[in-house]
Each structure stands twice: as structure tokens, then as C-alpha cells.
């Protein structure tokens, strides 16, 4: 005992300096990798990477993924997983497309439909996971296949939406002042983004605030960190898990509409593999699979990293499609192993 006195006194001294926590460490690694990649691309590849519009293009392409990845992070922070999100996105696209073009619904109603699908998914999956304690992976795997199957049942052939109000909304460009560039002819071209990007950014900020500064957000972390302790601390663990799955599915519904706004069509093959991209982004962004650790900003950077890799891979001439998949998987593998090492070190 006398021995340990000295030791912990020394430990007390160390604690005065703020130690970098595991969560922060993962986040820092992610941001560093992203910056190195992007700046490296600017220096060595130049071209499009020097324009702000390149970044905006990434954002526009990936706004739906950003939203689903945020939802995924929420669930993963509570220790769950939801792989139905890609399917929900496809289902929302197809349902909204059919509702607009074949049933003559107006745009607000189609938005409500998207939200409704997300909500229904969330309630069912959340209930099964939180209150019946079924493995979330199995439930959402079934959910994914259900959504994919339903998509073709709703409408088999892919088609482009003709609805005018919708196309107007789809083509709305929001000019970002001061970020434009001068093209070869010497004309100034404004940089722009679309509505999807705005929605995605609002969601990112909203969720960041929620996770950081609301009691609900903190109880997500508590439940994921140690659900037994969370129960002892007086948190309703089941309800918290339910809310996480509900939010994830509703976000998938929103993402579905954002995706729909970007592509303007319904197809059964839309957003294929998006769930895996969302999980990969979350993991790369520093969300721990075991729950309790994660950060929305990290997830956001994770999505950007993923698409930057894809951009780089295609601009260095490795334009064969498979390299993207392989690099993403390699990066995912790297991060999983880092996480495993960090968590096992903590256990010892």
C-alpha cells in the first residue's frame, strides 16, 4: 500500500496536464490523414483540387452519405449498428419518385413520405433492438433486404422524375460568394452548392451540438460506454437505444430525399453499398464499434476522407473501379486494427 501511495500521487501530478484521450486521438489521426491527403493532392495533382468547387462537388455528391453516416454514428455510439440505411435510401428514392410522377403528389407530401418511411423503420427496428434485445446487425440486415426488395416491388424499372416543381428544387444552386475561380477564358465562375449540402451541414451541426451538450446526447455515450453503469447511474438504457435507432432511421429517410434531390431518379440499385460506406466513414472518423466513443465532426471528416481517396485514386490514373473499393477496405482495415489495439491496451 505504501508503494501505491507514491505511484498514485505521481499519477495525480500527471493528470494536471490534459492527456489526449483515445477519442481525441482517433479524431486527430483522422483529421491529419484527411489534411495530408487533400493538401498532398493539391500539391502533387493540382488541377481541380486547387478549386474550392472541387470540395463543394465532393460535398454535393456525398451529402446523403454524410447524413446516413451521422445517423450510423449515433447508433454506433450507443453500441449498436444499422445496416439498413442504404436500403432505406433506395426505398425512399423510389417511393418518392413514384409518388411524384405516377400519383401526382406535390413535393411537400413526398418529403413527408420520406420522413414517414424513415420513422416507420426506426420504430420497428428500434423496438426490436432495444426492447426485445435482438442483435441489431441481424435486425438491420433483414431491414436492408426488406427495403431493397420493397423498392423493386414499388417499381421495378429505374426512371427519371419529370415533376416540374421537383426538378426546379433539384436544380437550385446556392452561390457561395468569394469562393469561385477564374476559368481558362478568364471568366469568373461562382462556386455553388445545392440544397442537400445545406441540409447535411445543418444536420451535422445539430447533431454535434446534441451529442456534446444535451443530456440525451451524453446518455448515448453513457449507454455505449458501459450500459450496466448507465443503468446504475439512473439512465433509461432501453429508451436511449430506441431513440438512437429511431434517429438513425429518420436520418436515413432524410438522406434518402437528399439523395433523391441529387440524382432525380428512382432505381433499385441506388445507394447500393451506402450502409458500408457509412459504417466505414464512422469508423475512419474515430467512432468505436464497441460503443461509447465517436464524434460527428470525425464522421464528417471520415466521409470527406473516403471521397477524397476516391477522387485521388481516379485522378492518378488508377481509374479501374476496383481500386476505390480496395483502398477503402484497406483504410477500414487499418482503422479497425488501430481501434482494436487501443481498446485492448486500455483493457490491460
Amino acid at each position: 500500500m505504501a508503494l501505491s501511495t507514491k505511484k498514485s500521487a505521481a499519477a495525480g501530478q500527471v493528470q494536471k496536464k490534459k492527456k489526449i484521450t483515445d477519442a481525441n486521438l482517433l479524431l486527430i489521426i483522422t483529421i491529419a490523414i484527411f489534411l495530408i491527403m487533400y493538401i498532398g493532392a493539391m500539391i502533387f495533382l493540382g488541377g481541380g483540387f486547387l478549386n474550392a468547387q472541387n470540395l463543394f462537388n465532393i460535398l454535393m455528391q456525398q451529402s446523403a452519405l454524410i447524413i446516413t453516416a451521422c445517423g450510423m454514428s449515433l447508433v454506433m455510439i450507443t453500441g449498436g449498428i444499422d445496416i439498413s440505411v442504404g436500403g432505406v435510401v433506395a426505398l425512399v428514392c423510389m417511393s418518392c419518385a413514384v409518388s411524384l410522377d405516377y400519383m401526382n403528389w406535390n413535393v411537400p407530401m413526398s418529403i413527408l413520405l420520406a420522413l414517414g418511411i424513415g420513422l416507420a423503420y426506426g420504430i420497428v427496428q428500434g423496438f426490436l433492438v432495444a426492447y426485445l434485445e435482438i442483435q441489431p446487425f441481424i435486425i438491420s440486415l433483414a431491414g436492408m433486404f426488406f427495403a431493397r426488395g420493397m423498392t423493386t416491388i414499388v417499381h421495378t424499372e429505374p426512371f427519371n422524375v419529370q415533376n416540374e416543381a421537383f426538378t426546379a428544387l433539384k436544380n437550385t444552386r446556392i452561390i457561395v460568394p468569394g469562393m469561385g475561380n477564374v476559368n481558362r477564358l478568364g471568366n469568373y465562375i461562382d462556386a455553388y452548392i445545392n440544397i442537400g449540402v445545406i441540409v447535411a451541414l445543418v444536420i451535422v451541426i445539430g447533431l454535434f451540438v446534441m451529442l456534446r451538450w444535451t443530456k440525451l446526447g451524453r446518455s448515448f455515450y453513457a449507454v455505449g460506454g458501459n450500459s450496466q453503469s448507465a443503468l446504475m447511474l439512473g439512465i433509461n438504457v432501453r429508451r436511449t437505444k430506441f431513440i438512437a435507432h429511431l434517429m438513425c432511421s429518420v436520418l436515413a429517410g432524410i438522406a434518402g430525399y437528399v439523395y433523391f434531390l441529387y440524382v432525380g431518379s428512382g432505381s433499385a440499385s441506388h445507394a447500393s453499398g451506402m450502409e458500408m460506406d457509412a459504417i466505414a466513414s464512422s469508423i475512419i472518423g474515430g467512432t468505436l464499434l464497441t460503443g461509447g466513443v465517436g464524434n460527428i465532426i470525425g464522421t464528417f471528416v471520415g466521409v470527406l476522407s473516403l471521397s477524397t481517396i476516391q477522387n485521388i485514386v481516379s485522378s492518378v490514373g488508377l481509374d479501374e473501379a476496383w481500386w476505390t473499393g480496395i483502398t477503402v477496405a484497406a483504410m477500414l482495415c487499418l482503422f479497425l486494427v488501430i481501434q482494436s489495439v487501443i481498446t485492448s491496451r486500455k483493457r490491460d
Binding site: 431493397r148 426488395g149 416491388i153
Partner: peptide, 17 residues
């Protein structure tokens, strides 16, 4: 064949529940 998963998913859900 594309719609098959929906039916199977229902079977899975019933089974796991």
C-alpha cells in the same frame, strides 16, 4: 428475383423475434 429479399426478410424477422 429482385423482390425476393423482401419476403425472406419477413421470414428472418419472424424467426429471430
Amino acid at each position: 428475383s429482385e423482390a425476393l429479399p423482401a419476403y425472406k426478410a419477413v421470414v428472418v424477422i419472424i424467426l429471430v423475434v
